[in-house]
């Protein structure tokens, strides 16, 4: 197990280097330097040269990459071109908000999709299985941004249950748990619905494959309670695809989150990135690409390791 963990960790390193290299290259192959965006059309050549020297933009690309990587490893993600703050400062405020949103969704999506998948697996091809499958198909096919809009329309405009967005009531500082929950409710419910629709389908397939296995029949024959048959014997095997699926879902969770934050004007990493994209504030964009890339590598790593841990058949080599 230890050997497998170590070898898997070493495999992640070239992937991580590749991720940093590609993200860096894309941003730095941009035609037209950020100088002109920042200093405006009236910039003199002298100002441009000073700016380039200050940000190290006049060095050869490989040198810039190594310098940048050295800084990144130390936790320095550069300075925002426009906000006069370090990217780290901006991210340290925005990222926890995003992680709260995604974390809530992942936790609840697990609970609901396991419950839904297990229920459907026991009722395969009955009317309620078909109803839940239709529900999954419908939400699975729904664009994040549109479901977000519909949620605002229904729960904010028609019913006035929740504020349509932001993180605080207008003109007031964000105070208290109730204010926070009321603002995070709609985006989280949107994300949960969409995630459950995807994961529930996988759980249903996995669970219905497990429930016809001999050892499940044995467990039932032993007179175990239905609960322990399903959740002790069944779940352990059918949760495997879900684990890997969650690891692979990280990019799509963050992608969905970007739309969600834009629709709900939720000031997390997605909105920060979106605004940076519109303003061509590339250090922020680069940091966001990097953070999501690293989280993806990490998610796949954790998924693989968990898989090996849960499934005794996986060879630790």
């Amino acid at each position: 197990m230890l050997k497998y963990t170590v070898s898997r960790l070493f495999q992640a390193i070239p992937t991580l280097i590749g991720v940093t290299m590609i993200s860096f290259l894309i941003v730095h192959l941009v035609p037209g330097s950020p100088v002109y965006t920042m200093l405006g059309p009236k910039a003199t050549p002298h100002m441009v040269a000073l700016f380039n020297a200050e940000y190290g933009l006049n060095l050869p690309l490989p040198v810039q990459y190594v310098r940048w990587l050295g800084q990144v490893v130390q936790g320095n993600l550069g300075i925002s071109y426009f906000q006069n703050q370090t990217v780290m400062q901006l991210m340290s405020v925005a990222l926890p908000r995003t992680l709260a949103l995604i974390g809530l969704a992942v936790v609840f999506a697990h609970v609901f999709s396991i419950a839904m998948g297990t229920y459907q697996a026991r009722r395969v091809n009955r009317w309620d299985d078909h109803a839940l499958t239709s529900f999954s198909y419908f939400f699975y096919s729904m664009p994040t941004f549109w479901l977000g809009l519909v949620m605002i329309m229904i729960f904010s405009f028609y019913l006035s249950w929740f504020p349509p967005g932001g993180l605080a009531n207008p003109g007031q500082p964000p105070v208290g748990f109730v204010v926070w929950i009321s603002h995070i409710a709609l985006p989280s419910i949107t994300l949960i619905l969409l995630t459950v629709a995807g994961w529930g389908r996988y759980m249903r397939t996995a669970m219905s494959e497990t429930l016809v296995q001999d050892y499940i029949r044995t467990a039932r024959a032993k007179g175990l309670s239905e609960w322990s048959v399903l959740f002790k014997h069944g779940l352990r095997n059918s949760v495997l695809p879900l684990i890997t699926f969650v690891g692979f879902s990280i990019p799509s969770l963050f992608a969905g989150n970007l739309f969600l934050e834009e629709v709900f004007n939720y000031p997390g990493m997605g909105l920060l990135t979106y605004n940076a994209l519109i303003n061509h504030d590339y250090p922020i964009v680069l940091a966001a690409v990097l953070i999501v890339g690293v989280l993806t590598v990490f998610g796949n790593l954790v998924a693989d390791l968990l898989y090996a841990f849960v499934d005794p058949r996986v060879q630790y080599t």
Partner: peptide
Amino acid sequence: RIVDILFALPGLYILLLVDSI
């Protein structure tokens, strides 16, 4: 291996980046 590396890239973010450039 190249595919593995590219898989870890947040495609949408890169797409947005290219489109904003």
